[in-house]
Nucleic acid binder design. Structure first.
Lengths: 342, 342
DNA sequence: CATTTTTTGAGGTACGTACCTCATTTTTGT
DNA sequence: ACAAAAATGAGGTACGTACCTCAAAAAATG
């Protein structure tokens, strides 16, 4: 068992004292540039790696991470919340806490204010799932300046400045749905109904783009109708779906693009709309799971909430410890679920 | 921040000394049943949870886990090995080591001897991927008696005694392949060629069972031919595949059940066998990935090697610390890969 | 009851890092 | 060259647990 070099070894190797090593390692002030470089050089030379176990123990307060999620929640969001709670429980032994705060997704100012109130005393990092508004972007920027690590979560923030996004690429997810739709239809021709809560959300937009790309390029006999919106309202959902089916007698496929597939699924059941048609939805939830099992839905495009949560924590923690993560390991997969591999 | 109770608090609550708490917590001998119960009762009462961070630090030697993998390796195995190495590197900061040893899968006695040589000094736990032979089973049993935690890895060991298996359920994986085959064929009728290295392996057997179940039940127009064996030999593979295609002019699908899809894929390319047919393989590897991209293979049934490795480590570690894991979180998913979600 | 055996307590050190204080040295500005 | 400021060193404590020794107490044995 090869003894790993400790801070003591590092101090000796760099020709400085333990105190200075500590200053450099933890980015404290009052160290000459020259000394910093000497220490860093020694780190490379002897291959020093901070013992995170000892470090966490020493800095009494472990890590505390917060997930900022929209208040208005769908089923999938609930799954995520459950996973966060689960992680929090399991993480206690590792001195890692994970909490949830809800932010007003309909009121960006209020949301930004909520974020502004968070201080580095309360948390070390935050994973944020929020619409991209200037207010939110600003709030995030200020948090980072206060020393809180941030990471976009599930809903992408365009901002290229910060690396590390936890979630799937929705274009690819839409393309996956498109390919399955095309293959499951096996050469049939006709129209496809695309349904979502609101076309305003970037997720839906990108999914639709990916979906379109595949269908239009590879399945010329299929035609995708303009996206229908439910606004989360079952009544409206039923209305628009019925109208669409009435207006087009050649509908062969249904694509539910939103995260809340529950409403479309229920409505489709009532209208008996999936019979003889291929139906594809997003995100595994109790609703979509049941629908897969009873055949209402043929495939579900999914991202694993447990992976989302754990990956976010790993990345945030790495940021806190100035480590890098293996991007390959943190990539969230776009999963395909059918009745057989649920 | 609610202070978590420490061993000191526990000692006070149980009315015993720190030394006794230590004895109970670490399962040492020389403690009266009555005392043990008193301590355990106090643990429940005050909600004591061992601080694993401090514990790992204190027991100098962190954890050392070994993956015992068959020597004769396919591409998928190489992926797994890469993930283990990756984990080992990343795990050093957490004081967790992960190593690989290769065992002779063709010589159970030699394999068993290799395992017998491992002592608790060398490792804390082992994840084993090996055929189920009495010799191996015995060796595992003896290891457990020596205090080494064991867990079957990817290849299931029937043995119901030990819980925790890391890998997918191959019946379900086969069923998934079957469903995709049926749907992708979209009502066409004909024969399906099933190919594997050897029908002796339980993995292949179970996959075939799952595959058959779906096809026979739901796709009466499809007929699965007797399983062909390659024994890993390209020449033989080409021979049996060509013969099958010659004997049956109605082959509409190919199912590569083994973990080494490289050979069948290459052979199929040479014979131009996939053109106009649906082809499904197992495990994502460079070969299957390329085949997906260029259309040689239509879908790949997969289990993520990174997840496999991390899950095995989590479970082994939990066993070492007498903790339980959330089975739901440790279940390895049977993934479906197509060109769009690779 | 005396003696052996078992059980328990008291106290210590160690793990590797964080974080603190204070003295001392080195550098900077004038 | 001098004072002021900045940089560094020396030494300490703490985190919560593991693991060790030795003495003392309690229980079991005859």
């Amino acid at each position: 068992m090869p003894m790993r070099p400790t801070t003591k070894d590092l101090a000796k190797a760099a020709g400085v004292s333990l105190a200075t090593v500590d200053r450099v390692l933890n980015g404290r002030t009052g160290v000459r540039e020259k000394t910093v470089k000497a220490v860093n050089e020694a780190i490379e030379r002897i291959g020093f790696e901070r013992n995170q176990v000892a470090a966490t123990l020493a800095r009494q307060r472990g890590y505390r991470f917060v997930f900022a999620l929209p208040r208005s929640g769908d089923e999938f969001l609930e799954e995520i919340v459950d996973r966060i709670r689960e992680f929090d429980k399991a993480g206690r032994a590792e001195m890692i806490e994970a909490d949830v705060i809800r932010i007003d997704d309909h009121d960006p100012h209020r949301a930004a204010r909520t974020l502004s109130r968070l201080s580095p005393e309360d948390l070390d990092g935050i994973a944020i799932m929020a619409p991209e508004t200037p207010q939110i972007r600003d709030a995030l920027h200020r948090m980072r300046e206060r020393g809180i690590r941030t990471i976009p979560f599930v809903a992408n923030q365009q901002e290229e400045g910060e690396e590390g996004f936890v979630g799937i690429e929705n274009r690819a997810a839409g393309a996956t749905a498109g390919r399955l739709m095309g293959r499951f239809l096996g050469g049939r021709s006709g129209s496809i109904v695309a349904l979502t809560e609101t076309t305003q959300s970037r997720d839906s937009l990108e999914r639709r783009l990916g979906f379109d790309r595949i269908i239009n390029r590879d399945y010329p006999d299929l035609r995708i109708l303009p996206t229908l919106e439910t606004h989360g309202d079952p009544g409206r959902a039923q209305h628009v779906l019925r109208n669409a089916l009435k207006a087009h007698d050649d509908v062969v496929g249904l694509y539910f693009m939103g995260a809340e597939a529950r409403v479309p699924i229920e409505v489709a059941r009532v209208l008996n709309a999936t019979e003889g048609r291929v139906t594809i939805a997003h995100e595994r939830t109790p609703s979509t799971e049941n629908a897969l099992k009873d055949g209402t839905v043929d495939a579900v495009i999914h991202q694993d909430p447990g992976h989302l949560v754990r990956s976010a924590v790993r990345i945030l923690r790495a940021k806190c410890e100035n480590r890098t993560t293996l991007a390959s390991q943190e990539r969230i997969r776009t999963e395909i679920l059918i009745a057989e591999n649920i």
